[in-house]
């Protein structure tokens, strides 16, 4: 088997597993019970899926110009996906979209209550 064939197989494996992970992330978005659990789906399998697709593309294309662009896409995805998940989670947190009956403990609620209490004291 030539080197090209081996690289093509590697690329195919990366592309297919990346696509499957993205599919799983999509299924998770539909099936998970509330906003916060859905954000897990958006942050993890989706990021790894994209990285695998990028690796697959890089192995298949094998030209410097394309690979540098793919590297940039991957780096920015890693840097921005957690921030996006954080912003959406934070914006949606004290809201009925979140199933508090599925939570074992909620230490953020206690923290927010305390902050509100401190604000009231400062105002009084």
């Amino acid at each position: 088997m030539t080197l090209d064939a081996v690289l093509d197989i590697v690329a195919a494996v990366c592309l297919i597993s990346g696509a499957l992970l993205s599919l799983a992330a999509g299924v998770a978005l539909v099936r998970f019970p509330d906003l916060l659990t859905r954000m897990h789906a958006a942050a993890k399998p989706q990021v790894l899926g994209l990285l695998l697709v990028l690796v697959g593309c890089g192995v298949r294309l094998r030209t410097g110009v394309d690979i540098t662009t793919l590297v940039l896409v991957g780096v920015f995805q890693l840097a921005t996906a957690p921030v996006a998940a954080h912003m959406i989670g934070r914006a949606g947190y004290p809201h009925e979209e979140i199933r508090t009956d599925l939570l074992l403990t909620d230490e953020l609620a206690a923290h927010l209550d305390r902050l509100a209490g401190e604000r009231d004291e400062a105002r009084a």
């Binding site: 799983a24 998970f32 790894l48 939570l103």
Partner: peptide
């Protein structure tokens, strides 16, 4: 960890009749 996380969330998503429980910790 990233690989484990992705497989874990994918499995939670595809697992039939299971509602994952969660927690918010400080």
């Amino acid at each position: 960890d990233l690989v484990v996380a992705s497989v874990q969330v994918a499995w939670l998503a595809l697992r039939p009749r299971h509602v994952p429980r969660s927690a918010i910790i400080a």
